[in-house]
Design a protein around this nucleic acid. Sequence first.
DNA 1: CTTAGGG
DNA 2: CCCTAAG
Length: 456
Amino acid sequence: MSEGKDVQHRTRVRDVEEEETEVDHLLAEPRNDRVSVDDCFRVDNKSRDVDISGHELYTCEEGDNYEKDQVKHSDIGLDDKRSASIGPSAACEDYLLDTEFVHKDSDCEDFSREESSSTSSGKPRIRNGNDHDKLCKLHLVSQRKCGCQNQIKEKTELKTPILYTSQNRRKLQSRLELGSLFSTRDMDLASFSDFHRSSIEVSVKSNPRKTEQFLSVMDLTSFSGQHQSSEEASLISNPWKTKQFSPAEKSLVRLNGSEQDMRVKGSAESSIHKRLRRPPVRYIDEFSGSVSLSDEKHSASDMFVDNLKSSHLSQLDSDEENDLDEPEKVSLAGKGSKNCSDRRKHQMIWTLLEVIKLVDGISHYGVGRWTEIQRLFFPTSTYRTPVDLRDKWRNLLKASNAWIQNDQEEKDEESQKNGHRQLQKEILHRISELGRLYPYPVKRTPTHTPKSSSRK
DNA sequence: CTTAGGG
DNA sequence: CCCTAAG
């Protein structure tokens, strides 16, 4: 039975993929194609946030060069050219910064440059002109003997990606000790799970302070599907558990909370869950009640977890879609839950991406042509009928008006504290603008200005 | 069938 | 989200 379910999931997932590719050009969503595993490591330095349109808002203390360009994207507006890509270079650099012994002009610089120019096939390169001193220094830090021959050897080895095998273990370790730990893209990610044990050891040696954080990050993100621990399952079903974790993944949680998708390109799976938005209460109830982290897949919650996993697996290849729309794959209406009123039976959460799609559609077609919008922007989704779109738009308008009337910032903080999802200014303004243009009670009276579009 | 409007 | 009436 699990087979049939699986098939079903796949088809649904495929649908979604199809949809995503179809609306590819229309989406006003960030395409962080290049976000890789490495990014999860860099987060702990910067507190990164993402507004609704997916723009990264950095609040970094140190003036980092590479972030300037990305910050700019927040100013562009809602154009579709927002490939605010974050390169692994950042991660590398951060780590190196943390590990005290590397300076800005070290090997990492090459990484970043390389990354910015090439998409995924960028092979890390170490600058040849590395002076001996630096390497010696590295060796010193990593408590290794400084043998010059070894260094040269390592230097050459660093140029080529190393697949993790038992034979290569030593190479990798030495690389790690050289501070290139976080350029994990060098190695086959499928072998990373095995690898990370040793890497942890190594990093303990090289920098105990940092390792604490690193370990917790690793706990959160087991990179191999074989290593899908029960913990991860629980994380997926109830991501808020992460809040109990230690400082390192606070930022990670924040990242997820901002619906930022981390994707490992080319690797089979990255099991970093995306959406941290708190599901409606009744879902939480369901999950907390029945999730036993066992193999049983009878309850709706288990189905949910399973769905998430499979969706993660198969979605990793498509480089589109930053914000996974779980509700598009999961029918959460399994149980006739609680004392919920009869309607809202099949309520599925509108994701950020969907909202953006909707807004795009409206700005494209105008209000009222819901069918068209649905056809163009929600092609393969069986749910999200034109009526749903209209309803959602109605709600959005209401909400945006309310939000704009009240103080934005205040609300923002408040709702973030409460864990509510907050539509950020950009889309908010867009909504209100459209609302002004097409007031919801469609009053297309040319003679009189619509009253409902009361100025804020 | 699509949309508007109310619940 | 559901239901219904109106075009």
